[in-house]
Design a protein around this nucleic acid. Structure first.
Lengths: 225, 225
DNA sequence: CGTATGTTTGACCGTCGTCAATTGTAGTGG
DNA sequence: CCACTACAATTGACGACGGTCAAACATACG
């Protein structure tokens, strides 16, 4: 099964060939921005360690968290549309990232048609990821949404050879609630409930998944085929 | 202000140059598919008249409406990722469309770098459109969601020189509910309520917007700057 | 014309948002 | 190092929005 929310990863040979144009940046510390909404779009970024959240601000000032990014994942390629970032990207803790200048990327695309197609595929993947989130928000309860997020984080950390069952949440309850369309209180309550049922063990941001199968069964639980 | 949900449109010169490779297809009638989920991806499509809905089916059989497309709008370019459509596209009524073979499109891209970039912009626009829907589903009430949809339809029809205040909804209440994460009953109730307040006049699918400003004020109404 | 499908409306109730208070955590300066 | 403060998280009480179940009504298609 495909993981929900899974952003792009640096896996293909094509993208490995980008390594020559990649620049390591100085480590960011908590709440430090990679770019702001409105900034000129110049680069995309890959996370080496730490975590990033991206969010956009509506006309009325409402913030919407649009994604969480973990080590190995790529972010920052919103704003291709008009060369301006629509999201703001913030470090959720001490975070080190690589910068991939987009002009270099475009130059390579000319000589490497496969790269161009590959990039379109990456964007298409983001679209289907968004559409899974839309389904989640439209049809799933608070429990199911949070279970999905925990499973996604677990899966994505596992791919990076990190523990899929014990990890530290990089984001606040408020961020989770914002992302999943829930209030802080509801997020907190669901965490408490999950712990009471023995699905997880949870000390503030320190998470241990005790019953992975149980969590999975919670997702898509109300509509069986 | 930008319209919610607004899909791609055939406006640019670049895309006009595609006209030579465009093929008109025989008119579709109601519930006839353009393509099914799983079909090989070969073309994208532009609507001449009528309307299309696209939806994808989850592992558990749940359907999720992912978009409604009106005359002048482009659809069907999901599935670029793996050359297979993830959505099914159905005619909502008698509908006539054009087919734009994607191979032709890729050939043109080589000689027209601008076209390539333009296409990426189109995809990026779809992403921000999805993210607006995510915000809507996460943070807005039933009234606000439906008001947003009505305003979007109004705006999109207006761009095509059709009446922005009197039109026929091409989709069912169930489709609307599915798209907006609501039940049929709630959709129906909100329509009734809007009519009672004098925001719209509504006879089944026949809609007349009586108070456009009133509808607009309903959107983003609960969080003022 | 009749049947299937779509739409409306009502009654009921569960989930989750709101308001409020308390506790826990982290960062700062004395 | 500890006190102080600001912020994050938890928990409770309460109510509203919207989902569920059910029935009546309208529409459309054969």
């Amino acid at each position: 099964m495909g993981a929900l929310f899974s952003p792009l990863t640096l896996e293909s040979d094509d993208l490995h060939r980008l390594s020559e144009v990649v620049q390591k940046l100085a480590p960011l510390h908590k709440n430090q921005p990679v770019f702001h909404s409105g900034d000129t779009f110049t680069s995309i970024y890959a996370i080496r360690s730490g975590a990033i959240k991206s969010f956009c601000v509506s006309d009325d000032g409402t913030e919407q968290v649009t994604g969480f990014y973990l080590p190995g994942e790529i972010f920052g390629w919103d704003g291709i549309a008009d060369n301006r970032h629509k999201n703001t990207a913030l470090a959720l803790g001490t975070t080190s990232i690589c910068e991939i200048p987009f002009t270099k990327f475009e130059e390579l695309s000319v000589t490497m048609p496969a790269l161009q197609k590959h990039f379109m595929q990456l964007m298409a993947r983001e679209i289907s990821s968004d559409q899974r989130l839309i389904t989640l928000l439209g049809k799933n309860s608070a429990k199911e949404r949070i279970a999905s997020l925990l499973l996604s984080l677990s899966d994505r950390l596992g791919r990076r050879r990190l523990s899929p069952t014990r990890f530290r949440l990089p984001m606040s309850r408020a961020d989770i609630g914002n992302y999943l369309g829930l209030t802080v209180e509801t997020v907190s309550r669901v965490f408490s409930r999950f712990q009471a049922i023995g699905l997880i063990k949870c000390d503030n941001k320190e998470i241990e998944i005790l019953n992975l199968a149980g969590l999975s069964s919670l997702v898509q639980a109300h509509t069986e085929a």
